[in-house]
């Protein structure tokens, strides 16, 4: 029962943060709501038994990546979003109804089959750092090492792109 309550609380915070992200005009507000979403998502991960991922979510996402976002927003001194006349009609006419249709369909399918789906029992399964570490350094060793190359490339790309033109 408690887990259901906890899920509902954090899910509500998630939904609220996501809606706030869309609603806010100023990017810094959006960024802060995104941090809220990520933090509460970490709690949801804990409910699912994914301890390692929850920790990484806080450290990398809410910590590193969002700091980067906030940093850039401040660096560029991004103000409130301007209302431009030359918007995209396609996005409004085609995109939004399309999105709504897809979302409603998915939601309908999920709620219809929802009660019959497998229940998640708290404490039944653990995504511990120990177990994931074993997996990463055995079965997924090569992809894991390749990610280091990916990050290196990303660092160099970021440096090159953000460098002031000569």
């Amino acid at each position: 029962m408690l887990e259901t309550v906890l899920f509902l609380i954090f899910a509500a915070i998630c939904v609220g943060g996501a809606i706030n992200l869309l609603a806010q005009k100023h990017p810094i507000s959006s960024a802060l709501s995104l941090i809220v979403v990520m933090g509460s998502l970490a709690m949801v991960y804990l409910l699912l038994g994914a301890e390692f991922v929850a920790a990484v979510q806080i450290i990398i996402y809410a910590g590193a990546i969002m700091v980067l976002f906030v940093f850039v927003i401040m660096l560029l001194n991004a103000g409130e979003e301007e209302r431009s006349a030359t918007g995209s009609r396609v996005a409004m006419v085609l995109g939004v109804p399309g999105l709504l249709a897809a979302a409603v369909t998915t939601g309908w399918v999920l709620t219809r089959h929802g009660p019959a789906s497998t229940p998640v029992v708290l404490g039944e399964f653990h995504g511990s750092a120990h177990a994931i570490g074993r997996l990463l350094f055995h079965e997924f060793l090569l992809p894991f090492e390749v990610t280091s190359v990916l990050i290196l490339v990303a660092i160099m790309g970021a440096v090159v792109l953000a460098r002031r033109g000569e």
């Binding site: 918007g87 995209s88 009609r89 396609v90 996005a91 409004m92 006419v93 085609l94 995109g95 939004v96 109804p97 399309g98 999105l99 249709a101 897809a102 369909t105 998915t106 399918v109």
Partner: peptide
């Protein structure tokens, strides 16, 4: 090819909707 990123996103969203609805 308007060059507007949001237009492209609109097309993608519409396409995704079609795929989802078709699959369902």
């Amino acid at each position: 090819q308007s060059g507007n990123i949001r237009s492209y996103a609109g097309w993608v969203a519409a396409g995704a909707a079609v795929v989802v609805i078709y699959m369902v």
